[in-house]
């Protein structure tokens, strides 16, 4: 991303709220893992072009929340709609939906036996039936954009963690998604590689991509998020714009969490 040096997010928000229509809507979502109630009556609306950062202590359900949005996790009750349509059950319908929602994982999950270029063309060719030559052109453009075009012919294991994660972002972007989900995208990275990934994400946010980002990177939240959602024990405890949340959190649990992570 070329504009990584810019400082403030573009003003696409009015009164701390994005103006686009709702794209992702979670309505009274509940989920259990056995006896554990991991999502408790979660309501969340993400508008088109909005960047929502989800933070919270580990085990708070934030990753699970992220994964329910493209149905990598099923839910027990409630509804999730994407662009006005409820998530379909397993099958082709669901596969099509997933192609519209990019996902970036903590552990990259690049296809280990395929080159960087093949990682980025596979979905286009198989799921979208794009011609291989066209898919390659698109892939190279996107790899260029995330700064790893010169690694196109290597296998994932030959790349650094930061490079792998940028390839993973490129793989998701190649599907031209309506929204991108990031599940702790920098948690598995060495410190010196975190920024190269965050810069790409900030660039995406500036370009108006709808994003749900589960992260511990408070700097990213301040730089690029329109809204911070704080989760604890399976519940959305607090939602606010980043400035308000970090300077004057309302709930005790958020205050406690922030005091633990921001004191050193």
């Amino acid at each position: 991303m070329a504009d990584s040096t810019a400082v403030d997010p573009a003003p696409v928000v009015v009164d701390g709220r994005p103006t686009g229509e709702p794209l992702i809507v979670l309505d009274h979502v509940d989920k259990h893992f056995g006896a554990l109630h991991v999502l408790q009556d979660v309501n969340l609306t993400v508008h088109r072009g909005e960047v929502v950062v989800v933070i919270g202590p580990s085990g708070s359900g934030k990753s699970t929340l992220c994964r329910t949005i493209n149905r990598l996790e099923t839910i027990d009750s409630g509804t999730i709609t994407l662009d006005g349509k409820p998530l379909p059950a397993e099958g082709r319908e669901l596969a099509r939906l997933r192609a519209d929602v990019g996902m970036v994982f903590q552990s990259f999950n690049l296809f280990a036996h395929k080159t960087v270029l093949e990682n980025v063309t596979l979905g286009q060719i198989k799921a979208k039936r794009v011609k291989p030559s066209e898919a390659r052109t698109t892939a190279m453009e996107i790899l260029e954009r995330v700064g790893v075009a010169n690694q196109a012919d290597k296998l994932p294991a030959q790349l650094s963690g930061g490079q792998q994660q940028r390839v993973a972002i490129a793989r998701a972007l190649a599907m031209r998604p309506k929204a991108m989900l990031f599940d702790e995208p920098t948690s598995a990275l060495d410190p010196e590689m975190i920024n190269e990934v965050l810069d790409v994400m900030v660039g995406l946010a500036r370009d108006g991509m709808t994003m749900v980002v589960v992260t511990h990177e408070m700097g990213f939240a301040r730089r690029a998020a329109h809204r911070v959602v704080f989760m604890d024990a399976g519940q959305v405890v607090e939602e606010a714009d980043p400035e308000t949340f970090f300077t004057a959190p309302r709930s005790e649990r958020a205050q406690d969490f922030l005091s633990k992570i921001l004191t050193h």
Binding site: A95, G102, N109, L122, K126, A127, R171, A172
Partner: peptide, 24 residues
């Protein structure tokens, strides 16, 4: 994670199996 990544880019079960899982 390989299967999840394959599903996340919109591959069907069969496509994930033949393009991602079985080759590995």
């Amino acid at each position: 994670g390989q299967a999840e990544a394959a599903r996340a880019i919109g591959l069907t079960f069969g496509q994930s199996l033949t393009s991602v899982i079985l080759p590995q």
